[in-house]
Amino acid sequence: MLLKRVFGKPEKFSMYYKQILYEIDSLGIGSLWLIAIISVFMGGVITIQSAYNFTSPFIPLYAVGLGTRESIVLEFSPTIVSLILAGKVGSNIASEIGTMRISEQIDALEIMGINSAGYLILPKVVAAMFINPFLITISMFLGVLGGYIMGVASGACTSYEYIFGIQSFFIPFNIYYSLTKTVIFAFIITSVSAYHGYYTTGGALEVGKASTRSVVYNSILILVANLVITQLMLV
């Protein structure tokens, strides 16, 4: 029901276009720092842990680089970063739209003859589906870089081995798989939290609850979707 209204015909394209640019900036660029820091550190930790576990003489040390790359590209960047975005962006969207609901701003849009669901939600969905793949790509790159820095700095592996590792057995399809996940997760994050915000009733307390609820639903849905997509694409 809500989705149908979200994808209704816009009143004026230029206004939607402006909103999309604004949302790309606020949802995407606004999360860049958080993602960068998390990715570098997680990449580092994954490298050190892999090296710590690969103590068998039969496993070459370049497997550390390979393992780090695969963990980051397949799982950490698309799924874990999306979960973090579900917390940050999701609660932000739910509380923003929820506040607009309880302070009658959504009613004010409706009274003007504007499809409020479309105007408020569509730009967010489009913006996130567009910008998140870039964020995740950056996260992959920084994660692998973080692994290199910390791996070499901690002596877990040598620079040559790590670089050799991250270059070997590269499967382009994995990137495609990850970015597909990312786009689907972006859709889940924005639409689920917008839904919870849009149907808030009551006062400030309910806005808080809607925002919490949206993070919970987002996380569960992302994990379930992750399983389904992995089954469909990798198996």
């Binding site: 009658e104 701003q105 004010a108 009274i111």
Partner: peptide
């Protein structure tokens, strides 16, 4: 045109 009791300006 409608003026809401609470104003309802866009924050």
């Amino acid at each position: 045109g409608m003026l809401f009791q609470g104003g309802a300006l866009f924050d």
